[in-house]
Amino acid sequence: MLKKVLWIALACAVLLAALAISRSVNLTSNAPKEPAPVQAPAAEDAAEPTAAAEPAPQPTAPIVKTPEELQVEEDAAAVGLTTVEPEPEAPAQTPPN
């Protein structure tokens, strides 16, 4: 009888130990273990800078127009600049009640 109890106790202890070991190595989880972060290549770092590391905006180079382009602009003014100005939006004359 005592032997039986001891065997059962031993079996339980083994079971508990096995359970503890399995938890420690995460054998029950289906999710793959997250890989260790990989260092991004330097080029990608430059391509997608973080907000904190965003460099100051480069001054845009002035657009140099060719003499032909300048002439077209001059001529466009001479035939009548038909670009439409934004519609004026004024508030109503008296505030709504």
Binding site: A77, G80, L81, T82, T83, V84, E85, E87, P88, E89, A90, A92, Q93, T94
Partner: peptide, 20 residues
């Protein structure tokens, strides 16, 4: 509609040539 000023503002041609 109490929108006399906007109406007046919208009467003239809105072309850049006219504004200039």
């Amino acid at each position: 509609e109490d929108r006399l000023q906007p109406w007046l503002d919208g009467l003239a041609p809105r072309y850049a040539g006219y504004v200039a």
